[in-house]
Amino acid sequence: MSAPPVVVIQETSKIYQQGEINVIALDRVSLTIRGGEFLSLMGPSGSGKSTLLHIVAGVDRPTSGECCVRGIDLKRLNESELADWRNQNVGFVFQAFNLIPVLTAYENVELPLLLTRLRGKARRTQVNTALELVGLADRRNHLPRQLSGGQEQRVAIARALVTDPPLMVADEPTGNLDSQSAHDVLTILQALSRSAGKTVILVTHDPKAAAFGTRTVHLEKGQLLN
């Protein structure tokens, strides 16, 4: 028996207005992702894969159609509710790591936890566990500029998983990394899906990276190919 669906996208479109021209980034896409699945989203540049990822992560809103994540229709949430929802449900990994340069690795990982009810020791334990999980416990007091690209991305993964969200989304997380670091990062994401049961969505145009997933879907010109 397969796991229940975590993400259900139905007839979702996203149209950007560029001057007088409408650019269709997503064209009536329907997709279901089940719990624990590691989905690789592939496609050429401008195919709409990042847009789709942003909609699922509650960072962007679709022009039409529905996007339900764990039974919640994201359309119904206002700006503040959506911010809270992202904090509790989504771990985001970016291509450029997006760590706060003035904060240490520890403080970067701690940032999402500052919005939760966790206090003091419990918060410290959780941050340290997340850093240990990505193998960077000994780098906790380093600033991002004192870390290598691969280490920065692992800190970013620790930040994404520190709140224990059911959904992890990664937008070209290996785009800026050498092959060894890329392999490390993908292995961590795979482990999160396999052993922690997290739903992972990976946007990439590298077939080798996509191969880490349990399923791969292709997007082209805003439409799903298979």
């Binding site: 997006n98 999402p112 930040r159």
Partner: peptide, 14 residues
């Protein structure tokens, strides 16, 4: 700007 975007994605409100 990008930092602000990141913070918003992490759940920080306006």
């Amino acid at each position: 700007t990008r930092e602000i975007g990141t913070l918003r994605v992490l759940g920080y409100r306006r």
